[in-house]
Design a protein around this nucleic acid. Sequence first.
DNA 1: TGTTATGTGTTGACATGACAACACGATTGC
DNA 2: GCAATCGTGTTGTCATGTCAACACATAACA
Lengths: 169, 169
Amino acid sequence: MTNLTDDLFLIDPNDSPETPARRTLSFSRTPTVLLTFAANRFTRSAARHYQETFGIGAMDWRMLVMLAREPGSSVSHASKTMGIDKAAVSRSLQRLQSNDLASPAATGPDERRKDWTLTQTGAELHDRILEDALARQRQLLDGFSPEEVQQLNGYLTRFLTNLDALNDD
Amino acid sequence: MTNLTDDLFLIDPNDSPETPARRTLSFSRTPTVLLTFAANRFTRSAARHYQETFGIGAMDWRMLVMLAREPGSSVSHASKTMGIDKAAVSRSLQRLQSNDLASPAATGPDERRKDWTLTQTGAELHDRILEDALARQRQLLDGFSPEEVQQLNGYLTRFLTNLDALNDD
DNA sequence: TGTTATGTGTTGACATGACAACACGATTGC
DNA sequence: GCAATCGTGTTGTCATGTCAACACATAACA
């Protein structure tokens, strides 16, 4: 099913005849451009803020959420759920452990696979950052109605589904 | 104006009484989570694809678009337009120049500020990748109507506007 | 029981991009 | 005219995250 024509996203160089610009992507009308732009700016802003305020990086904050959401996660499960490489996950957990924010527990006979949970300190930090994150998100969604938020979520979810299909080649 | 309540985005741990999960962000209902998730997965997939197919990284491809869109850009102008650090822009332009894809021209008495343009080779590569990028985007937006694309663009633009306001603190 | 295949976590090497410091030309104010 | 400030581009350093290689435990299967 193809209901979209490419000229939705293209800048026609004839729009401004004096410039020798080529026909290329519009920044303001191309969803993938806007998406990466918005996400990069958001991540950077959030990382700076959380580092200054709580002394924690964006990756480690995401991991706190992961462990709050699903205590007992393993490296591979967290990696799959968050869509982040398992190496980054492994290193994040080691940082959290060395800061006494998360701790591993052996789950069975396999010595490697560990169940990770938040420590008391980690849980408290999570709750403090969560409050802050919700306040920031409220500002970022200022002017959005609940229905619009739901629509945005739906669009992004559909985008992700299509991305999965695209990668299955 | 605040029309959104936090519980739109939160998982209630009581949903599954057997797990000791904390009240935290839902992955599937939180726009900022979905946004970074979608953008990271998209960027990674695109970077791998363009590297394999055209031998060029995601950053350099974005720069090709930038120069196609606005020939004669300087480092600082491209940096501001793309929202990327000027150091990354500077290094990208040097890579492009060493691959004969872009070339600088002195614009005035200031020896540093250069007008960058695509070479013939660069323009041809841009056009080839553009075709590929449009095909990929068509797949990623499969099932979207033109109106939905426009709505998505609008939401992301509003998000970016709010982000600007948030950073002005 | 071997023997292979699969899954899990760790490490090293690398790419990307942010931040800070710097050099230096341009601009402003006196 | 001169000093101070600002803008521009380059470089060093660092954090993040990917990929590849590896060690090792488990599972599948003849």
